[in-house]
Simulated assay, not measured.
Amino acid sequence: MAARPAPAAPAPPTRNRAAAPAGDGRLRRALAHNARAYAFLAGGVLCFALFSWYPAVRAVVISFQKFTPGSPPQWVGTTNFTRILADPEFAAAWRNTLTFTALALLLGFAVPFLTALVLNELRHARAFFRVVVYLPVMIPPVVSALLWKWFYDPGAGLANQVLGFLHLPTSNWSNGSDTALVSLVIVATWANMGGTVLIYLAALQSIPGELYEAAELDGAGLLQRVRHVTVPQTRFVILMLMLLQIIATMQIFTEPFVITGGGPENSTVTVLYLIYKYAFLYNDFGGACALSVMLLLLLGVFSAFYLRLTRSNQD
């Protein structure tokens, strides 16, 4: 009898070779995708670290030092702060800055809001007037300040020429100690109101029309509709822009630097302009950094209010 062949040995269990490469491929793709994301994030963090965080930390360190370019710094503690506080220009700079901020809130808060109300009611040429209102924002700040410097010139300036043509009394404008700061407020309001107007306009257009219709049925007039409908519906935007305006106006520098040079009689010397004088005119970088730290702490309080306001609105 012929021998039967031995049964074949059972084949070893095969592994799913297709699944492993597919899983590895997904993992590699995920790692590559995240690596690119972290690379882009690292670039942004590096820019902030070099140009924002490091200068801020360095300024805090220098505020406690006697720092002169070309010589090694010397640690002096709080001497810079006490010396700055005793400087007569320190009180004048803070007084001018706070006065400018208050005037800018009165003028720069009401004018953009009223302008947005008018633009919201327009039915024709609305796009044209939006461009006209936003146009000053597109002009470089230094160019804008130079234009207004010529406009305010007591002799050949357009402002006094118009007043003289109308047989009205002329003014010294930016050359008078009692009118210079108000003149700068007008310049800053004109130059920066375009963006604020557009934000207000967007907030106004988001208000449901049914609210105005209900107010009209109840007999509410224009001022009553603005008071009881418009202002409550845009309360968050108003508060947010008010805080941002306070932070921005307390850092006013371009207008005093270009138009008045801090004069006349230090009536337009602001905190930021005084920082510039300490650093580049007096060659006192320690005093300039000490004053910068004071301004930083004050603006940090308003920034904290702004962050709390935005978070509470999101919640």
Rank of each mutant, 00 (worst) to 15 (best):
V132I: 15
T254V: 15
S303M: 01
E213G: 00
T68W: 07
Y282K: 12
G287D: 12
G43L: 10
A191K: 14
W148R: 09
Q251F: 06
M1N: 09
T230S: 10
N160D: 04
A279M: 03
E216W: 01
L211S: 06
N313C: 11
V187L: 14
A37P: 06
V57M: 13
I247M: 11
R28M: 10
A159G: 03
D153R: 02
L107R: 02
N34F: 10
P140E: 12
L50W: 12
N16W: 10
S177I: 09
F236L: 08
L158R: 06
H228E: 09
P264K: 03
R83E: 12
Q245V: 02
G300S: 03
A37E: 00
G23E: 05
A279K: 00
A20D: 12
V76N: 05
A93C: 15
R225E: 00
N80P: 08
W190C: 04
D87K: 12
P5L: 14
V226E: 00
P69Y: 08
H228D: 02
T82M: 06
V143G: 08
L296S: 12
L50T: 13
T79D: 02
A288G: 10
P7H: 03
F51A: 07
F302M: 00
V162P: 01
V226Q: 00
Y200P: 09
I259Q: 04
T230W: 09
Q224Y: 09
Q233T: 07
A3F: 04
F113W: 14
M294H: 09
R126C: 04
V229Y: 11
A127D: 12
E255H: 15
L114Y: 01
W150H: 00
D153N: 12
S267N: 12
T230R: 02
S171E: 10
V57K: 05
R28L: 08
V185F: 11
L274G: 05
T196H: 08
L107V: 15
S174Q: 04
L119H: 06
I238M: 10
Y278F: 14
W173F: 05
Y278L: 12
R58D: 14
L117Q: 03
L184A: 13
Y134R: 00
R26I: 02
L119Y: 01
S144W: 00
N175K: 10
L239P: 04
Q74M: 13
H33I: 09
Y152K: 01
P88C: 11
M193Q: 13
S52A: 08
V137A: 15
P55W: 13
N34I: 01
R95H: 08
A92F: 04
Y212Q: 01
L184Q: 13
Y273S: 13
F40P: 03
G25K: 04
L272M: 13
V269G: 06
T260L: 13
L103A: 15
C47H: 09
I139S: 06
A104Q: 11
T179D: 05
F280W: 10
P55A: 10
R29C: 05
L168Y: 00
A116W: 01
T254H: 05
N80E: 08
